[in-house]
């Protein structure tokens, strides 16, 4: 029972909310526009450090840091997008992946330490956010599933942002803009021959989804009151992809459900493996302390494989549409 409570806490907590937000942006890129962005983590880094640097380094109020975050995310999207959107999807994937890593190394390097805090990052920049918390001090929840008023505040903001982003994507997908974006996913040449600018729609999609990623980064930074560069490893992008695929690629609400499922499963596997290790039934070499953390991802991998075999379209996807996707 505790395993499920823990899993539920993780699946509804700020972590899942911010992954949901990042995944909604990624879904706009990949699911709706067909752009293989392997560096969503780069946008998250920009978002997290935008808040942290704005408040901690520059001493700005939170709203100013928020504006800096959005401007920086738009700038990063343009920097990344303008030279690469004309290229094929796989080149964009390589560029975004490398750019994400480059950002992490840049922000942890000695030369930028005065601004970014180097390897140790920055802390305590979200006080203003928590002062805005309208929820009275205390603990909230049912039975063992409780959150502190602070966590609850971040959670609510995180989920409101994620739902708002999904709502926007859903509206866009039903509009003529969405029709052009989906058509780009299907066949760029047709879109060109229909007199539409593929480049400008792709850039718009990249910027919008990137800003959502940056929002996720900002929620991450605020929820932990700390940022460190090594939180922004490439795996973060792939976890967000897992959420997109679980929920159903190109489904507006898919990433929200996908993120909840992903973190629920991670937590269940984690607790399950630990419980198994504690029984002593398994040899110690197999279940050393370092290995435990890795096993849950092995299990998630099996879970995703099973999903691809039995329900490749994800929870909300359409099987017929999936079959037609193979040209």
């Amino acid at each position: 029972m505790d395993v499920l409570i823990d899993a539920l806490r993780t699946a509804l907590g700020p972590q899942a909310a911010l992954y949901a937000l990042a995944a909604v942006g990624l879904n706009l890129h990949y699911g709706y526009t067909g752009m293989l962005n392997f560096g969503q983590v780069g946008f998250m880094l920009v978002g997290a450090y935008g808040i942290a640097i704005g408040v901690s380094t520059f001493g700005w109020p939170l709203w100013a840091a928020l504006i800096l975050t959005i401007v920086a995310a738009v700038g990063y999207a343009l920097l990344l997008g303008l030279p690469t959107v004309r290229l094929r999807a796989d080149y964009l994937a390589i560029t975004t992946l490398a750019a994400g890593e480059a950002m992490r190394l840049l922000f942890r390097s000695h030369s930028t330490e005065e601004v970014t805090g180097g390897v140790f990052g920055l802390t305590r920049f979200a006080n203003e956010f928590y002062e805005l918390n309208p929820i009275p001090r205390g603990r909230y929840g049912f039975g063992n599933l409780v959150f502190s008023h602070q966590t609850l505040w971040v959670m609510i903001v995180g989920w409101v942002l994620a739902v708002a982003a999904a709502l926007l994507v859903w509206r866009l997908a039903k509009s003529p803009w969405g029709r052009v974006a989906l058509s780009i996913r299907e066949d760029e040449e047709v879109v060109r021959s229909a007199g539409k600018s593929v480049v400008s729609i792709k850039i718009q999609s990249l910027v919008l989804g990137g800003v959502m990623g940056a929002g996720a980064g900002a929620v991450l930074a605020i929820s932990q009151q700390a940022v460190a560069p090594d939180a922004f490893i490439p795996e973060v992008t792939f976890f967000a992809y897992a959420a997109v695929i679980l929920g159903g690629v190109g489904r507006a609400w898919g990433p929200l459900v996908g993120a909840v499922m992903f973190w629920f499963l991670i937590s269940v596997f984690d607790s399950g493996i630990r419980a198994l290790a504690d029984t002593g039934a398994m040899p110690d070499q197999l279940f050393s302390a370092d290995a435990l953390g890795a096993y849950r991802f092995v299990l998630v991998g099996f879970g995703l494989m099973a999903l691809m075999i039995f329900r490749p379209q994800g929870i909300f996807g359409d099987r017929n549409e999936m079959v037609l996707g193979d040209h």
């Binding site: 926007l168 509206r171 039903k174 509009s175 003529p176 803009w177 029709r179 052009v180 729609i201």
Partner: peptide, 12 residues
């Protein structure tokens, strides 16, 4: 198409 502009698209 008016609805192809990003800022018009969400407002049907």
């Amino acid at each position: 198409q008016v609805g192809e502009r990003l800022w018009c698209a969400p407002i049907s």
